[in-house]
Design a protein around this nucleic acid. Sequence first.
DNA 1: AACGCGTGGTG
DNA 2: TCACCAAGCGT
Length: 289
Amino acid sequence: MSIAPDLSDWFRANARDLPWRRPGFTAWGTLVSEFMLQQTPVARVIPRLAEWLERWPSPSALAAAPPGDAVRAWASLGYPRRALNLHACAVAIAELHGGVVPEDVDQLLALPGVGPYTARAVAVFAYGHRHPVVDTNVRRVLARAVDGLGEPAPPSTRRDLAAMDALLPVTLTDARVFNAAAMELGAIVCTARAPKCDECPIRDACAWRAEGYPVYLGARKPVQKRFEGSDRQVRGLILAELRAVDVPVPASELTAVWADGTQRSRAIAGLLSDGLAVRTDAGYALPGH
DNA sequence: AACGCGTGGTG
DNA sequence: TCACCAAGCGT
């Protein structure tokens, strides 16, 4: 009953051909892709990633651009703070690391918008270091295969990293493949809804299967708050307005995108506070240099 | 630790 | 249709 060898063999035979798995893909490309993949599906990332790397092929190239250009190029990937953080990363890498993406996990963690997942993903996939990489897919795979639970407990970085570390093969190459394999299994076989257990390469070792696929019984919180009418929706609408034009947008024009003044003001204040927008004499705009 | 933060595809 | 979901992070 093994997990790592079978899963890794399956991955070597079945891995999707994704841009960040191409030979010669740069560490900068890996960092950009990981930022874009934070809560955004692969299919939506791929075209934006290609555009981004053609325009800004290095951290220094992005660092030289105004942050507003990054926010605009982020387009509809969602959570535009990531664009701002990625730009800030580029500046930090240019100024503190000689324009080279650092490979040390602690140095990566010190970069804005880089957390436990992204730091290890870059260290492992771009540089071949040996660390456990745990994302939402891996948490689900381990919950099922190891713990026999239909869905994972609430995330705990410390516990989750320890659980993956316990399964990690010894050699650099095997560890990297296993990390990628666990993510891939969660993404295309051991999915959140309707997992394809019949096609699973580790079904014979799966604790969840062995126990008859028990369903989770506890109460569940809503995955997300309602989007319609939310501050998130209003922020998104206002930012779309700022992205669409090259000149400051007068406050009077923003009344057209959301009528409720209280909520509109709150959204604008939030955008200003996050640095996603700035106030000028002529109105609101994306941040410049 | 729980919550806020976008956007669009899908069963 | 409409909840649910998608390679998280910062606070």
